[in-house]
């Protein structure tokens, strides 16, 4: 897929809670095609501590409004700065990058999308895409507490949503892998993105139950386009670039101890 470097304009910067915000961006021409699971490398304004671009997943593309959404968690200098960006400001993106979640085969109808924390970001785009293709995705979203569950109304547009929170303030109490839906319903395919310990627990569940599973990794990146070899993941086939051969991997190719 062709990659671009564009200046996009911020049309909205919604504070979702103290930690998370949603940036909506538009372009003066039609946005390029993007696939679920792909990401953008965002340039943070000239600042010594945010020298490299920041990789952020494509959360959603609103084709009618020609809008690209980025769901971001404040963790350090770069994301804290982005949280303050005003409407009308331009943001320089190199995008769309990486592979994508693989296409679902017609015989794998029962599909579960598991997202944790900011890892729910690519799940919205993936869910929308699956729905458009005629599948009925089921979402299982996990967070610390109710206020950290984001974009729930958006998710419900594309499928059934189940939740877990660590404090029990929304959905079932506990971790995503403890949710009762996993015992009640049979799934043929799981897509997951979230903190590594969560994805490993999901991978372990999938492996034990013979379910095909793809996970989206978040290794530290410098270039995002396969030039520096900084982002590698050790796979059964040697070091692979997470930015070009990933971020989505079939868990059977990873060397996770699960």
């Amino acid at each position: 897929m062709k990659k671009y470097m564009h200046d996009l304009v911020i049309t909205a910067n919604e504070k979702l809670n103290n930690q998370y915000f949603l940036l909506k961006l538009t372009l003066n021409s039609t946005l390029p095609d993007m696939l679920p699971g792909q990401f953008a490398e965002v340039l943070i304004d000239d600042s010594p501590t945010t020298f490299l671009r920041r990789p952020i997943s494509i959360n959603y593309v609103d084709k009618q409004k020609n809008e690209l959404w980025l769901l971001v968690q404040k963790v350090g200098d770069g994301t804290i700065k982005m949280a303050e960006y005003p409407i009308g400001k331009t943001l320089n993106l190199v995008y769309p990058l990486g592979n994508s979640f693989s296409n679902l085969l017609p015989n794998k109808k029962n599909v579960l999308l598991i997202g944790g924390g900011v890892g729910i970001a690519p799940m919205l785009m993936l869910g929308a895409d699956l729905k458009e293709k005629g599948f009925e995705p089921v979402f299982l979203l996990g967070a610390r507490s109710e206020k950290d569950l984001l974009e729930l109304t958006d998710f419900t547009q594309y499928g059934q949503v189940f939740t877990t929170t660590e404090d029990g303030s929304h959905g079932e109490k506990g971790y995503v892998t403890q949710h009762s839906i996993l015992t009640k319903q049979k799934f043929d395919k799981i897509y997951t993105c979230g903190p590594t310990p969560m994805m490993k627990a999901v991978a372990s569940y999938a492996t034990k139950n013979g379910i095909e599973c793809e996970a989206s990794l978040e290794n530290m990146m410098a270039c995002g386009i396969g030039a520096c070899l900084c982002c590698v993941e050790d796979t059964k086939d040697g070091h692979k670039c997470v930015c070009t051969e990933g971020p989505v991997f079939n868990i059977k190719d990873l060397k996770w101890q699960i």
């Binding site: 010594p48 290794n219 070899l229 900084c230 070091h239």
Partner: peptide, 23 residues
């Protein structure tokens, strides 16, 4: 050469450190 294990990169003020190791 497989190069060095991950992590191979650290951002530093106005720069970066790499330890790719000639993969």
């Amino acid at each position: 050469r497989e190069g060095n294990p991950y992590p191979r990169m650290a951002e530093t003020p106005s720069g970066m450190l790499n330890a790719v190791g000639l993969q």
